[in-house]
Every structure is written in C-alpha cells, then in structure tokens.
Amino acid sequence: MKVSEFEPKIIGFLCNWCSYAGADLAGVSRLQYPSNIRVVRVMCSGRIDPVIPLEVFVKGADGVIILGCHPGDCHYSEGNLYEERKIKMLKKLLALTGVGSDRLELEWVSASEGQRFAQMVTEFTDQIKKLGPSPVSGKNPDLKVLENLQAAKNAASDFRLRVLVGRERELTEKNNVYEEKIPQEEFDAVLDSAVEAEFIRHKIHLLTRDRPLPVKALAEATELKPAEVLKQIVAMRRRNMITMDHVEGTTPFFKALEVG
C-alpha cells in the first residue's frame, strides 16, 4: 500500500483538563489537522491502564496517542508522571510483540496549546503513515503478532509488572525506610528483564493453554534457546502458571494452568 493511500486508524486518549481542552482550543482556533484520530476523553492520562492500549491494538488500531497535562500542571497533581512510567514499560512490551514501540506515544498538551495539539496529531499521523498499517489491523492480521499482543496483554495484567511500575516513582525518587533510594539505571535494568521474562512466560502460557508442549517445541515457537525456555518454565511452575502434563519417552510435556 502506498503511503498516500493508507489512512491509519488512530485512537487518542485525552485528559479532560489539559489536552482535551487543548484539542477544543485547536477547534476554536480553526486549526486544521488530519482527521484520522478518534478521541476518547478520560479524566486523567494516568487513568490509562497499559492493558487498554494493548487491547486497542488487538482490535486493529494503527496507532495510539495519549495526551496529558505538562509535568507540574496535572489537575490531579502527578497522574501524568505515573502515566509516563506505565508508558515506558508498555513501549518495551510493544517492542517485543512485533507491533513496535513507535505506534504508541505519550505527549503533553496544555489547555492553551491548541497549536501544539494540532501539531502533535499531525506529526503522529505522519509517523504512523510512514510505519504503514499495523501487522494486526486490516482483514488479514498477522496471527503471530496477535498472539504476542495477547501475551503482552496478559503480562500487563499480571501482578509483577504492575507492582513494579506502580512503585517505580516511590522506589527511585523517595528514600525507603533504610534511607536508600534505588538508582534509576538499576531499576530500569530490573524492569527490562522483568518485561522480557513476563512476556515470554505469558507467551509460553498461551502456547500451552490448548495442548501440552515439550520444551523443544516451545523453543521453536518462541525463537529462544531450550535452556532459556526451561528456565522460564521453572519460574512458571513456582508461580503455578504451568504444570507437567505427561511424559512421552523421556520428554516432559507442559500445560498451562488457569491463572488468578
């Protein structure tokens, strides 16, 4: 498809107090911008649970943009800063799915920045047009990417990533009871490995949901070394995510357990 023909489907989540008002101001100022964006008003950008954009991508969006108040202007004090942490994690997850992290952006637009709103929407629409259609939008979605998105959605719904992101600012910005603060780089390293591990675990979980599979088959499906898959399976067994179903010859077959 040529870039000029492609009309991307873009969902915008706008906070009520700054960005939505900024979008209204763009209207009052009669600024013209591409019509691809569909706006959902929420009270605060911080309302956007990472699962929401993931589900929107599953349903075929080509891009998602979240707009909140500038730091310091949040109507709810710091909802936007918490969103920043969630989106940082979500971009890492999206990169693993094959959808790519560039299809999701978080930007700040104040109530007085009609011009900036129009510019943000124009730039983001161009960005998505250049990227082309999402691998899961349209009539023939890439089933592998779709499954990756599902795994990412499950990982984003699960306790570990949510608690890490929910506590990030507290851990990295405030002293704990021992008067210690975790350096940002250290936290980022922990988060990076957690995102990767959780994504793989939930992928294995999805793959073994309908039928038991051996490590070798899982390694092929996830394009990982068998040793890595086994390592994750051990962790998953501890968390009651998976169990050994049966053994064929000397090969154990694993099957997902219902989570939650």
Binding site: V42, M43, C44, G46, R47, I48, D49, P50, H75, Y76, G79, Y82, E83, K86, F159, R162, V163, V165, G166
Partner: peptide
C-alpha cells in the same frame, strides 16, 4: 483521576 485503577497490581 483513576491512577489507582490503572495501576492496581
């Protein structure tokens, strides 16, 4: 604001 709902583990 919904920050709690969007982050509850």
């Amino acid at each position: 604001c919904g920050v709690c709902a969007a982050s509850c583990p």
